[in-house]
Amino acid sequence: MSVLEIKNLSYIYNKGLPSETIALKNINLSINAGEVVGIIGKTGSGKSTLVQLLNGLIEPTSGNIHINGKELKGKNKSEEVCLDVGLVFQYPEYQLFEETVYKDIAFGPRNKGFTEEKIKEQVYNSIKFVGLDESFLERSPFELSGGEKRKVAIAGIIAMEPSILILDEPTAGLDPMGREELMCNIINYHKARKNTVIFISHIMEDIARVSDRVLVMNEGEIFDFDTPKNIFSRRDELQKIGLNIPQITKIVRMIKEKGYDINDKVVTIEQGEESLIKLIKGRKEK
């Protein structure tokens, strides 16, 4: 069943002004419950605009969006439906405002009307999910490092138990360890709750590793929406629209181009390893 249906969606910024920008053109999209969708596309291709439309922050210029069968419009827009879509903004650090991390994470759940008990449980669960120590809960969010702030901000959204979690470039500006940790946490979170996750990233390896399907955006339009394997087999076309393929896919491709018989439908390190071992074993037997 699809949790998210988008029909003929278009969005124009500053309509009627000289600075008018068409950000999205006639988008049609359907995302299934429990799916992990990665969104890629070069800077300015409309990714952030798309996800902001999904949680009702901005209204479509034309077209409509259905979430769990309900249209995102009018009365629905302001309340439950929107809060069911948790959006972690690009650079979410600036949304922190409370005296302590605990209070800040509790802000969303409280607005959603959870009981104090439930809020507490949610706060503790979500801080663990993002990989921070419980001792952080008593600290002021303003004396944390950039990466820690990012994690607290993400925890603040996760604590609201959204049925669709959207992350806009969650790993931008984090160190390799932090990035790795965050990606693992997102995967674990998805495994534990089985809810829909949509995330935007410029790192093809991350996209390949976690997504069931990949949405490729180009200049406000959907270029393709398919499994990572199919998407990343279109290297030349991707490169034309300013994107790339994962390193491992490149390596395996190069080996194949040298004339070796290797399975090049590979997008993650694990799959690459498998293909390589198969190739080596096959050669040994000969």
């Binding site: 949680n55 959006l87 959603k112």
Partner: peptide, 8 residues
């Protein structure tokens, strides 16, 4: 926007 999406 960010606070609104947290239900403010």
């Amino acid at each position: 926007s960010a606070q609104k999406s947290r239900g403010a």
